[in-house]
Design a protein around this nucleic acid. Sequence first.
DNA 1: TTTAAAATTGCAAAGGTTTGCGGTAATGTT
DNA 2: AACATTACCGCAAACCTTTGCAATTTTAAA
Lengths: 331, 331
Amino acid sequence: MGSKATLKNIAGILQISISTVSRALKDHPDIAQETKRKVRELAELMDYEPNAFAVYLRTNESKVIGLIVPEISNYFYHSFVAAVEEEARKKGYTLLILQSGNDPAIEEANLKLCKLNRVACIFVALSSETRDLSTFTRINASGIPIVFFDKVPEDNNCIKVCLADRDIGRLAARTIVAKGKKSVLAMFGNPNLSITRKRKQGLTEEVKKLSPFVEISTVTANNTEESKSILMEACQKKDKPDTVFCMSDEILTGVIMGINKLGLRIPQDIAVLAISNGFIPKLTNPEITYIETSGAILGKKAMQTFSEIIEKGLEKKLDVISSKLVEGGSI
Amino acid sequence: MGSKATLKNIAGILQISISTVSRALKDHPDIAQETKRKVRELAELMDYEPNAFAVYLRTNESKVIGLIVPEISNYFYHSFVAAVEEEARKKGYTLLILQSGNDPAIEEANLKLCKLNRVACIFVALSSETRDLSTFTRINASGIPIVFFDKVPEDNNCIKVCLADRDIGRLAARTIVAKGKKSVLAMFGNPNLSITRKRKQGLTEEVKKLSPFVEISTVTANNTEESKSILMEACQKKDKPDTVFCMSDEILTGVIMGINKLGLRIPQDIAVLAISNGFIPKLTNPEITYIETSGAILGKKAMQTFSEIIEKGLEKKLDVISSKLVEGGSI
DNA sequence: TTTAAAATTGCAAAGGTTTGCGGTAATGTT
DNA sequence: AACATTACCGCAAACCTTTGCAATTTTAAA
């Protein structure tokens, strides 16, 4: 039973040295064609696969990319993951997908796991509760590059790939004003995320700039449930808003539920505008008008950035992706 | 700069042997308290983490569980993954999440990756296109246990954790008959999956048994787009169905889109009944009535099975989870 | 027929950890 | 004082691969 498929065993059977076998399998020019042939044949026969751990140990780098997101079920992150996955596979990398569930403790544990696995790089969309970035800087200092995407830190001394969040906010503002809306309930996610601040700022400032008559009240909704109840409450008051703006799919989901519950019609009773990846908006009648944030494009960009890190060793960078409006009929 | 945090360096600084350091950190009884204290303190200071690859290489088993699904964005699989993830974390395992995208070639590459990473176990929901299971049996023979879930092979000589698919079909039938429906458009996914066959069989047989007056026509919809167009076509004929049954969230999504497009009302114009994990059904008005398939419960069961494999070394088993009806108002 | 160059191959160390076994020193027992 | 325990600790091999360098054989050149 000493016939596990290892270099040693192949060498033993062929009565040649381990190094020769190793080189033969790598098509090293030093090795004779005849020898290579024999080695390859036997390796094939024995179903040989190099022991990844031994390779990693020796070379001290694993062909793994860590990926930490709050939730993969989120359609946006899923399309990001799918894009990264495809590019990664092409380059021979594996993805270690980890979810933080917006819990900083789990996020930290996941980071540790990445370090433990000597990943070549970590892609991170921050948990909304994360305040302390010291673990990230420590990991980074230990030599593992980190690419932040979507939910990125404010600090500019790192590598970020993100959406043009302020522009997205402005585009939303222009849409609202152009449609002649007067009172907007604008729902945002966790306020300590920079994407929240930027989207909010872009929206409110642009509205103010464009028209003094549009009233806009911003609220924070931390999850789908909250969004639903906030919307329902707001729509049952006598000065109910004519438009609701949702900065994410999570919020949009709650809003749709609330609107359904109250039996309101879109857009007659209430108009809806969202920032979304486009899946949820297609489920209503009429479809929701949204500003598209493509996870797929962001993912490609992230992998491209990774390549640059490997090749040129860059240490800070800011990549920004622009977005466009997709009309649905909800506003 | 020779101060990487390794056993060797700790040993060097403390002037003791590597084995003593190793044992001290593992709280081995052979080591004196005083020594343990010193070692632990220095290890802490140096931020020591054992090199995972060295450990894996030595022990020849990684604390990783492979997980192959067609698509994680699918709400059902996502809740499965979330459940497994939680249990796995508790036991100190990491998840290697891989998507096949229903492509057998990618599925096979993913399997290989699992083998390469010497995973402790593989959880698999088969791609709908997979016919040839030989790679699975080969991997299994090489000592890696495989737990199939949800989309499982027909063969009973393996470990499976799945839903009571035939019963689910029957429950759907009873619901349809009880609501007095007469003509049903029943939409199913890929016919070469056992879950498709069983659900279909359960539904049609039970309907036949319960009532001779219910007409049921079954069709195959391979994706959301197809579902949408099939539904629209069917509903524009003159003998349009009074009820549509959807065997999955994917199909349900397309059906909702189609219904919206045609401006039909649920349930007056058409009643809807689905098999779902519960997310999509909550987005319509009224909510969709569905038979719940809990990914979370299935995930827990799968991890439990994994424990039994490790402890008792079982080699075949069939676990079945039952489901219940959740009333929404769509039928 | 030497000598030089080219073509092959092997040796051995390194990467970090685990672990069986043997060794030393301290303590306890008659 | 002689012996047996007990408490600690270290040696060295093993896990498998990669790779610089040395060693060997073959071929070419002079």
